[in-house]
Nucleic acid binder design. Structure first.
Length: 276
DNA sequence: ATGCAGTCCTGTAAGC
DNA sequence: TGCTTACAGGACTGCA
């Protein structure tokens, strides 16, 4: 669920609450996330201090001061928060880290369990895992490389934007919002995008994501930031979730179509399918 | 090699 | 009211 802006918000919220604190205890309740939390990992992290926290694509990386790395993914419904240790426990709480000395806890809750929590012994092991799955950050897209990526494939634009190896961090909401702003139909073949729009598309992706980060991401249902606050960008959606409602530019009713296995929202009038 | 469909899981909302 | 079905921010696997 959470896409790049939501994950970035969580990381920013957690940073001041985590860095400098040490892990006193690890509690797993239902060790059935996408991958199970291994018991040996607990002994590796006890006593270590949180040194830094950052984001890569939709992944959250926590550097520990003993070179270990925690890697978390929120999946569709994951919530990662730091709360007072006395805060009542909730359902679907899979991982708890008791922090020292602040009497607080880092909690990972995930009802749908599509999320994951992994431990790596070093930065290089972590990077091997991530580099296998992720392409460039949307803020570092190289114009020429992006153009090549589009030209050399038959895939739909929507499928391309959702491909984490092409751009790390974009998900269903921000793919739809980006395409709407450029008047591009989600089913357009990437290689059919008019030349003058390729660079505009490359630039629009980070623009939309930055705006969303400004608003602390989007809360549709479950998403909350690292401090428990909801996002605000859902109030800024121009097409996502607006099916049946009038297009903000031309009043035509917004429609949905299934592309690359995901529901895609678009204006049938402003976003004509380009076919070369 | 490439791209799609199906799968993992639970909660919620819509439909009958 | 209650049961059934469809769908949801993602990633991965297997198959064509």
């Amino acid at each position: 669920m959470p896409e790049l802006p939501e994950v970035e918000t969580v990381v920013r919220d957690l940073r001041p609450r985590l860095v400098g604190a040490a892990i006193a205890r690890v509690t797993t309740s239902r060790e059935k996330l996408r991958r199970p939390w291994k018991k040996i990992w607990t002994s590796r992290v006890i006593g270590a201090k949180f040194e830094a926290i950052h984001r890569r694509g939709k992944w959250i990386i926590i550097d520990l001061d003993n070179d270990g790395r925690l890697l978390l993914h929120l999946g569709m419904t994951g919530q990662l928060t730091v709360v007072d240790a006395a805060t009542p426990l909730t359902d679907h709480l899979h991982l708890r880290f008791d922090l020292n000395p602040k009497n607080r806890q880092l909690r990972f809750r995930d009802p749908r369990r599509f999320g994951s929590a992994d431990w790596f012994a070093s930065e290089s092991e972590l990077n091997a895992f991530l580099d296998d799955r992720l392409g460039p950050e949307p803020f570092d897209l190289n114009p020429a490389a992006f153009r090549t990526e589009l030209t050399r494939t038959n895939r739909s634009l929507k499928a391309l934007l959702l491909d984490q190896k092409v751009i790390a961090g974009v998900g269903n909401i921000y793919a739809d919002e980006t395409l709407y702003r450029l008047g591009l139909h989600p089913e357009t073949r990437a290689s059919d995008v008019p030349r003058n729009l390729v660079e505009k598309l490359r630039a629009m992706i980070p623009t939309v994501l930055r705006e969303a980060i400004e608003k602390r991401g989007s809360t549709i249902r479950d998403y909350i930031g690292g401090s428990g606050l909801e996002g605000g960008f859902q109030n800024e959606f121009r097409v996502y979730g607006r099916d049946g409602e009038p297009c903000l530019k031309c009043k035509t009713a917004i429609e949905t179509v299934r592309v690359a296995g995901r529901t895609s929202h678009f204006c049938p009038s402003c976003q004509k399918r380009v076919v070369k």
